[in-house]
Structure formats: structure tokens, C-alpha cells
Design a protein around this nucleic acid. Structure first.
Lengths: 188, 188
DNA sequence: GGAAGATTGTACCGATCGGTACAGAGAGTC
DNA sequence: GACTCTCTGTACCGATCGGTACAATCTTCC
């Protein structure tokens, strides 16, 4: 059991924030011990694989969250409009309306990408497939659905980058609102 | 004068590739000396401000390239369709059709953001303003033009992230092609 | 209470970090 | 050739990096 009842999930959440704030290479063990309140001894006891294992588990936890809250609902929903609204709401919540950065996207851009290529690709691939399957059920052809899902993912990532770059979270909310309309539009 | 006739511009270009490949924090002086062929002595002679100055000058050089090849033409063009096509072609060229990452976007996401906040914000702000001015001349209202320009920047950034994440540069080309159509569409 | 195992803080490791000092090589000028 | 000034390679700096070793401390169960 962990000291002070700290669960592994809480540790992972703290780790996630450190990686988000400083990137994989920038997240030093000093920063990590500060953020988690855990000494090196505890850290390496929990994660014998070191920083790489920490990052891998953080990515897996993020993936799990999206799987439960975003991907799975998309696959099973029967009302497209409601499902899309729910996805957008979930995304808005997860990214704190643009104040929070996407760790998966960050890793993809950095040099740590190669170490986590599979996790990164899988995350976006499953998201796109889940969204496309919903769009197909709403009347789009397979290729239309794939393309529109790709557009959705790329819009979310771009909005996070631009919002961060310009220090204006409203950019993210505007993009999400436009995206909702674009996803619900009738097939061209 | 530089050894072997190496110009400062060439050094900056090599530096840019190192920063792109490893991020600001990941670009160690060892990596930098290898990429530029310059020892520490030369490096610190050329850039007394160290890594931070190197990154600042690289960002400035990128900014200059976009200013000359993208922003300025947008401001003075009289044929919107041609100007937009030229911008898209320039962007496609600069980012090697999706194989190259946007250093400005990368810096924006990383923890080095605060050090270069002004440069990062200015780059996107001038791009958006230049594009919006063209769109206004093509018949859009000011707010429509601003919003559509914002969408363009975010789409480009997102496409670069997603293409990188999925290891598929075609995503970038598709996004640019769709973006062209969206920019040329009549006002809603 | 005492054995066993999980958990922890601390000291320490070699490697590498960004940066400095400085002697000397190279080029230009007279 | 000698003086100047620009440029460069190398040795070195303290700090920090990710990671390991290990003894001390807690829990748990008997």
C-alpha cells in the first residue's frame, strides 16, 4: 500500500501533469519527486522501468480515459447528434477548455516519439475509427466518415497548439464549436 | 568570417533541424556541435547568449522566411484565389509535405514557451492578420475573415501533429487540400 | 513480540548538461 | 615578418541528469 493512501492512479495523474508541463525530456526526476511527493526510492519501487515506464503508464492511463469516456460511447451510440455533442463536451472537459495541453500530441512532436510510437498511433487510430463508425451510421460513406473523423482529430490538436501559442483558450472553444457544426453537416 | 565559408544562415538552418528533431531542451550542445560541425568555441563566439540565443535566432529566421514568402504576399495580393494557392504551396514546401514539424508550434507546447512567448505569439498573430486582410478583400466581413484565418492556422498545426503522430504525411496533404477549398468558399 | 515483506529516504554512481577560460591557429594589414 | 583581430579546439567547471544500493522504517500476519 502507498503512503498516505496515495493510489497509483493519483501518482499517474501527477506524473501526467509534470510531463505535460515539461515534456518527456524536460521532466526531470527532481521535478517528478516534487510533483508526486515521492522520493526516488518509492518512484523506482513503483516503476522499476524508470522514466520510460512512467511515461508509458501515463499514456496508457490517458488512453484508458478516452477509451471509456470518448471512444466506447462513440461506438455504441445510436443518436449521432447527441454522441457528437457528448464527444465534444468530453474533449472540452478533458483539455480544460484549452488550458491543458495534449500529452499524446506533445510526445508525437518530440524526440521521445519513437519510444512511444505504437501508443501514440493507437490512440489516434482508435479515436478516428470510433468516430468514423458513428459518422457512417449517420449516413456518410466510409471514406467521407474517415476523412471527417481525421479532420476532427486534427482540428482538436491544432486548436490546442494555437491556443497555447497565442495564450488564448477561447481559440480552443471556438474551434470545438465550429467542429461540432462541421461534424453534423449533411454529406457533401 | 566562418571556417569553410559556412554562413550564419547555414548554421541557423542546421540549428533549426536539431531543435526540430529534439526540441529545445533535448537539443544538447553535443548534438548541436555534431549537426553544425562547429565546436563549442565557435558556437559561443557566434552566439554569446548560448542556447537561448541560438533558439531565438532560429525562430527569428523562420519568422523571416514566412514574412517574405507567406505573410507579405498575402498582404499585397489582389487575386485571392491565387494568393491562397500560393500560401498553401509555400506551406507545403516549407513543411516538406508533412515530413517536417513546425518548430514554432513545438516551442509553444514545450516548457520553453515562456522564454519565447513573444516570438511565438507574434508569428501566428502576423500570419493570421495577413491572411485575414486578404480574406476581407475577397468579400468576407472582418470577423468572418479573422475566424477563417484562425481556422487555417489551426488546421495546419493540427495536420502536422496528426501526420507526425500517425507517421503518415498524406494526412498533411489532404488537410491542405481541404483547407484550400474552405478558404475559397463563399461567405456563409 | 517477532519474522517477513513492502515501502521509504539518503547517499552515491558515472555520464552528461550548459557554459567558461584560454592558448593558439588563421587571415588581413602594414 | 610582426602586429592585430577574428575565430576555433580543448580542457575544464559546477550542476544536474537518470539510475542504483542499501539500510532503516513501516505493515501485516502469526
Amino acid at each position: 500500500m502507498l503512503k498516505r493512501g496515495l493510489e497509483r492512479g493519483e501518482v499517474l495523474r501527477a506524473l501526467g501533469e509534470v510531463f505535460r508541463a515539461h515534456g518527456y525530456e524536460g521532466a526531470s526526476l527532481t521535478l517528478i519527486t516534487e510533483a508526486t511527493g515521492l522520493g526516488k526510492g518509492s518512484l523506482y519501487h513503483l516503476f522499476p522501468g524508470g522514466k520510460e515506464q512512467m511515461a508509458a503508464e501515463v499514456l496508457a492511463e490517458i488512453d484508458g480515459w478516452f477509451e471509456r469516456h470518448i471512444f466506447a460511447p462513440l461506438r455504441t451510440a445510436d443518436d449521432p447528434a447527441r454522441a457528437i455533442a457528448a464527444m465534444i463536451a468530453g474533449v472540452d472537459q478533458y483539455f480544460h477548455s484549452g488550458d491543458r495541453v495534449c500529452l499524446v500530441g506533445m510526445v508525437a512532436l518530440g524526440s521521445a516519439r519513437d519510444s512511444f510510437a505504437e501508443a501514440v498511433d493507437g490512440y489516434f487510430a482508435r479515436w478516428q475509427t470510433a468516430l468514423a463508425s458513428l459518422l457512417r451510421r449517420s449516413g456518410l460513406t466510409n471514406s467521407q466518415a474517415q476523412r471527417r473523423a481525421e479532420d476532427a482529430l486534427l482540428t482538436i490538436q491544432g486548436a490546442l497548439v494555437l491556443a497555447r501559442a497565442r495564450g488564448d483558450a477561447k481559440i480552443f472553444r471556438r474551434a470545438l464549436s465550429d467542429l461540432t457544426a462541421r461534424l453534423l453537416a449533411p454529406p457533401a
